[in-house]
Amino acid sequence: MEIPGMPAVNLKQTLEWLRKELTEMQIQDQQLLLALRHLQSLLEELRAESTHWENTRPSRSTSPFRARLGSDSRGCQPVSRGLSQLLLGEESRRSSLP
């Protein structure tokens, strides 16, 4: 199928570019899905650990996480370089139109 005023070669190149972009988007979707599944498993582990600490500690006034981190600080585990790049979009490649 040819669009009037557009040579078949340009249409072919455009379709190839579009296929490539869609393939890259699928790969990015799969990477995001894997990252989300990993985060979900980490959250489940933290919930299990939290439940364990809640059930085994003698005093219920302070969370074990707050006790380790101090009552005023908000703790945050370091994010792996690959995950941080993924979340910040550093590995994301956006192509320009041909």
Rank of each mutant, 00 (worst) to 15 (best):
M1P: 03
I3C: 12
I3S: 09
A8I: 07
V9R: 13
V9I: 15
L11C: 08
L11G: 02
L11I: 15
K12V: 05
K12A: 15
K12G: 02
Q13R: 10
Q13K: 14
L15G: 01
L15N: 15
E16W: 08
E16D: 14
E16G: 04
E16V: 08
L18G: 04
L18A: 02
L18D: 01
R19N: 09
R19F: 14
K20E: 13
K20R: 04
K20S: 12
K20A: 05
K20D: 07
K20G: 02
E21C: 04
L22G: 10
M25N: 03
Q26F: 14
Q26I: 05
Q28L: 02
Q30S: 10
Q30K: 07
L32D: 03
L32Y: 09
L33H: 12
A35S: 13
L36M: 12
L36N: 09
R37C: 08
R37D: 12
R37Q: 07
H38R: 00
H38L: 10
L39C: 12
Q40P: 01
S41M: 15
S41A: 15
L42I: 12
L43C: 09
L43E: 11
E45N: 10
L46P: 02
L46E: 10
L46Y: 10
A48N: 08
E49P: 03
S50V: 04
T51Y: 09
T51A: 10
T51R: 04
H52R: 13
N55S: 13
P58L: 13
P58S: 14
R60I: 11
R60Y: 08
R60K: 15
S61D: 05
S61V: 01
T62W: 05
P64L: 01
P64M: 11
A67S: 00
A67V: 03
L69F: 14
G70E: 03
G70L: 04
S71Q: 09
S73R: 06
S73Y: 06
S73F: 02
S73N: 05
Q77P: 00
P78S: 02
V79T: 09
G82L: 11
L87P: 00
L88G: 10
